[in-house]
C-alpha cells in the first residue's frame, strides 16, 4: 500500500512538475504546480511529517499559490514570451544543463551509502513535537523569521505604490 502510494505520488509529482514548466499559459502552470504541491503533501505524510504536510497545504497551496494566481490574472499576460532572439541556444543548453544536474545529483546520491534508518522518536512530526523543538532550540530564528515577514510586507507595499500616490 505504502509502495503503491509512493510511486503513484512520485509519478504525479514529476508529471505535474513537467507540465508546470512546459505549459504555455501561466494559469495552467500555476494549477499544475498546485498538483505538485498536493502530491508532495501526501509524500510528507508518508514520511511521518504531519505538521509539514498540513502547512504545505495551508501556506503553499492556500496562500502562496493564490497570490501567484492573483498576479497572473492581474497582469493578464498570456504566454508573456516573445520570439526568442536574445539567446537562440537557450532551449538545448537549458535542457542539457538540467540533465547534467540530475545526472550529477543521482550519481552522488547512489554512490553514497545512507545506512539503515534510525528509529523514529515518539510523536515524530506531530504539531506538539515540532513546536517543542521550534520554541526551545529555534526560538531566536523563529523571532527573526517574523522580522523577515515584516520586511516582506513593507517591501511589497513600497514596491507597488504608484509614484503619484506616494504621500507627500
Amino acid at each position: 500500500m505504502e509502495q503503491v502510494l509512493f510511486w503513484l505520488m512520485a509519478v504525479v509529482a514529476v508529471v505535474s512538475a513537467l507540465t508546470t514548466i512546459s505549459s504555455r499559459r501561466p494559469v495552467h502552470s500555476a494549477l499544475a504546480f498546485l498538483v505538485t504541491l498536493l502530491s508532495l503533501a501526501v509524500l510528507f505524510l508518508l514520511l511521518s511529517a504531519q505538521f509539514v504536510a498540513v502547512i504545505q497545504i495551508i501556506i503553499y497551496a492556500g496562500a502562496i499559490l493564490v497570490l501567484f494566481l492573483f498576479v497572473i490574472m492581474l497582469l493578464n499576460a498570456q504566454s508573456g514570451e516573445g520570439p526568442q532572439i536574445k539567446l537562440p541556444s537557450q532551449r538545448p543548453l537549458a535542457i542539457a544543463l538540467a540533465l547534467l544536474l540530475f545526472g550529477g545529483l543521482s550519481y552522488l546520491l547512489l554512490s553514497s551509502p545512507l545506512g539503515a534508518a534510525r528509529p523514529l522518536p515518539a510523536g515524530m512530526g506531530t504539531v506538539q513535537a515540532v513546536g517543542g523543538i521550534l520554541f526551545n532550540h529555534f526560538l531566536l530564528p523563529f523571532e527573526v523569521a517574523s522580522v523577515l515577514l515584516l520586511v516582506g510586507v513593507i517591501g511589497a507595499v513600497v514596491l507597488t505604490v504608484k509614484e503619484d500616490e506616494q504621500p507627500k
Partner: peptide, 20 residues
C-alpha cells in the same frame, strides 16, 4: 524535481513561470 525546476528557470522567459 529540483532538476525540473532548474530546467524551468533556465528555459522559460515568462518571469512568473521562472518564479514558479
Amino acid at each position: 524535481l529540483f532538476s525540473i525546476g532548474a530546467a524551468g528557470a533556465l528555459l522559460r522567459r515568462n518571469a512568473l513561470i521562472v518564479f514558479i
